[in-house]
Simulated scan of single mutants.
Amino acid sequence: MTVHEKTDSAAGQDGAARRGARAPARARRRHAVARFWRQYRSHRGGVFGLAVLTVIAVLALAAPLLAGEESRSVTDATGGALEEPSGEFLLGTDQFGRDVLALLLWGTRVSLMVGLLAAFLSVAIGALVGITAGHFKGWYATVVMRVTDWFLVMPTLVLAIALSTVLARSLWTTILAIGVTTWPTTARLVRAQTLAVESRPYIERARALGGGHGHIMSRHVLPNVMPLVLAQTTLVISLAILTEATLAFLGLGDPTVVSWGGLLQDAREAGAVSAGNWWYIAPPGLAIALVALAFTLCGRAIESVLNPKLGVSR
Rank of each mutant, 00 (worst) to 15 (best):
L66A: 13
A62I: 09
Q39I: 03
A51P: 02
G45F: 13
F96D: 10
L61Y: 10
F48D: 00
R44T: 08
G80P: 11
L59W: 00
V74Y: 14
V52G: 05
L65H: 06
E84L: 11
L61T: 12
D94Y: 00
A34D: 10
G87W: 07
Q95L: 14
A67S: 04
L66S: 11
P85D: 14
Q95R: 13
E88F: 08
F36Y: 02
E83F: 02
D99L: 00
R44W: 05
T78N: 14
R72N: 10
L82D: 04
G80M: 12
A63Y: 01
L61C: 07
R35V: 15
R35C: 05
G49D: 09
P64Y: 03
L90I: 15
E83T: 04
A81Y: 01
S73V: 01
A57G: 07
T93P: 03
A34F: 04
Q95A: 14
E70N: 15
V100M: 07
A63C: 01
F96K: 03
R38I: 05
E69Y: 06
A67Y: 01
A77H: 02
V74G: 13
R35T: 11
S42F: 08
L65K: 12
P85E: 05
T78W: 01
L65Q: 09
P64F: 04
S73M: 10
L91H: 11
L50P: 12
G79A: 08
L82A: 11
L53H: 04
R98A: 01
R98H: 00
G45C: 03
F89K: 08
V52Y: 05
L90A: 14
Y40S: 12
R38H: 08
F36E: 01
S86C: 12
L101F: 15
L66P: 05
D99I: 02
R72S: 12
A62D: 09
A34Y: 08
S86L: 12
F96Y: 13
A67E: 00
R44S: 05
F89A: 14
W37S: 08
T54Y: 04
A57P: 05
E88V: 14
D99A: 02
E69C: 00
L53D: 07
F96V: 09
V58P: 06
T93W: 08
L66T: 11
A51W: 07
A63V: 09
R41F: 02
E83M: 14
T78S: 14
S71G: 05
L66G: 10
V55G: 03
T78G: 14
E70Y: 13
G49S: 08
L82M: 12
A51M: 05
Y40L: 14
G97K: 00
A60G: 09
V52A: 03
F36M: 00
V58A: 15
Y40H: 14
